[in-house]
Amino acid sequence: MAPCHCNCRAPISHLLLPSHPPPPSSKPSNPHPRSVNPPPSTSRTKNPSSRRLFLLAAAAAGAANVPHCRALEGFDPVSPEERSASAAKSRRIAEAVGLLEKGRELQAQGDFGKALFYFTQVIEGYKDFALSEYARVGRALALYEVGNREEAIAEMEDVSISLKGYPEVHAALAAALYVDKHAPLLAENQFTIATLLDPHYTDLSYVKETKHWPPSLVSSLRQFITLT
């Protein structure tokens, strides 16, 4: 049999290629892969001498502020004139309160003549204080007792406006309007205000023993309550 001279070798390219190519990857390749070793931080590459200079500058600034802080410790925002004015006003308030309390004490003792004097002192000497309005209430009650009822009622009417909502003056005005002015409707309006604010004013023993009203005004309130 004659030998076969045909070329039976497979092409090299056929041998190099796999019979079944691998499936394409689901993740696209990163054209710019992240560096494994990132460059060192710039904060670590700073010159150590700059840090020392910063610390020295901070220490120098703190030392420079020490005299300033000591000066602030001795600083007083209140001037001597303001301090003196405040002390003078405190003395005046204490004086006014003392006179008002003395008037109320004499009123409780039944000495309405002397009580009138002290209440008037508060009104005339300390009218710039709000407590002078309460002295006017005491003065009106004292005036009613000593016989000056017209002035007493005028005082009550005026204070009922400046101290609107103060039940005592509304109750006193109701009693006076009913007896001395024969104005039952006005008296009823004033008494309604008083008793809405403080129901105690329907009790005669309360105005006599607790509020220390003068006997004449207690009598007027009795007449109003009993409609006699």
Rank of each mutant, 00 (worst) to 15 (best):
L185C: 00
A154C: 04
D180Q: 05
A130T: 06
H14V: 12
S41A: 15
Y206G: 01
D111E: 09
A142E: 04
A140S: 12
P11N: 10
F129T: 00
C4G: 06
L17Q: 10
P67M: 09
P28V: 13
D158I: 05
K89P: 01
H212G: 02
V146Q: 04
F129P: 00
L177A: 02
S84N: 05
L72Q: 11
T202C: 01
H14W: 15
A142M: 06
H20L: 14
H20K: 07
G110R: 03
S35K: 07
L173C: 07
Y201V: 06
P21D: 11
K164I: 05
P21N: 10
K102N: 08
H20R: 09
L227W: 06
L186A: 11
I123N: 00
R83I: 05
F224R: 00
L55N: 06
K127P: 00
R91V: 14
R92Q: 14
H182E: 12
S35W: 03
D158C: 06
E151W: 03
Q107K: 09
R44M: 13
A96E: 02
K127R: 08
T120G: 08
A176N: 02
A154K: 13
E133V: 02
A140N: 06
P48Y: 13
P24A: 15
P184Q: 07
A10S: 08
A94W: 04
A154M: 07
E145K: 03
S162H: 08
A71Y: 05
L106H: 03
S29V: 11
I93D: 10
P33T: 07
T228N: 11
P39I: 14
I12Q: 11
F224D: 01
L53E: 07
C4M: 03
R51C: 11
S50H: 13
A187K: 00
P3R: 10
C69K: 05
A130K: 02
S35V: 14
L53D: 04
S13G: 15
T195C: 10
